[in-house]
């Protein structure tokens, strides 16, 4: 020890020549990194990269699927939203909205079928809005259909129209209607 310290008289350095600088066996950082590597197995013997195991056709299909899952960068990757029953009903209502309100005129409908890429959102109310420009807490619903069902005026109008339609149908299809009535009676007996 003393001999060694004479040989290397480095006063202010902290170099411990006796300490073994072997890699600590508990230190498994390298192993951890190698865990993700694909080169630790007999990679060279493999016929094909396991990552690209799918055939060329399958890869192409996969790529197309990924591409179709969004609308693309031109529309900021709008996602292909999953169609639920509620959303589907909302979209149908939007499609037929010209009959919702008798006082509202709509131009020719340009909606063709159900959209593929869409999002469901809500208007944000700002504190500068007047009361008439926002819905009350009670009026707020999670879907358009629910909003309509909660609207008393709409329901009243809808009921009236439905009744009118029914009466009209009875008048124009008088014979068929009577037949149906008779059948009903017969079945009751």
């Amino acid at each position: 020890m003393s001999k060694d310290s004479d040989l290397f008289s480095l006063n202010n350095t902290y170099l411990d020549m006796h300490k073994s600088y072997q890699r600590n066996k508990n230190d498994n950082s390298v192993q951890e990194i190698m865990k993700k590597s694909i080169l630790n197995t007999d990679y060279g013997m493999l016929e094909r990269d396991p990552e690209c195991e799918a055939s060329l056709k399958q890869q192409k299909i996969q790529k197309l699927k990924e591409k179709k899952s969004t609308k693309g960068p031109d529309w900021f990757n709008m996602k292909n939203t999953k169609m639920t029953k509620e959303v589907q009903n909302d979209l149908r209502v939007l499609h037929m909205r010209q009959v919702l309100d008798p006082k509202h005129f709509y131009k020719k409908n340009d909606i063709k079928g159900l959209p593929k890429y869409f999002q469901v959102g809500k208007y944000v109310d700002s504190p500068t809005d007047f009361y008439s420009a926002r819905l009350t807490k009670k009026e707020r619903k999670s879907t358009i259909v629910e909003e309509l069902m909660a609207d008393a005026d709409f329901m009243k109008y809808n009921k009236k129209k439905h009744k009118e339609r029914k009466i009209k149908h009875i008048k124009t299809h008088a014979k068929a209607h009577q037949k149906a009535k008779r059948l009903k009676k017969k079945n009751k007996k």
Binding site: K71, D74, W75, F76, M78, V87, D90, L91, L94, P115, Y117, F118, Q119, V120, G121, K122, Y123, V124, D125, S126, D129, A133, R134, L135, E139, R140, K141, S142, T143, I144, E147
Partner: peptide
């Protein structure tokens, strides 16, 4: 257009709109 009402957002024909 009232605050709190629901809408469906769709891409327009023009990119970014």
């Amino acid at each position: 257009m009232k605050g709190g009402s629901n809408v469906v957002i769709e891409p327009h024909r023009h990119p970014g709109v």
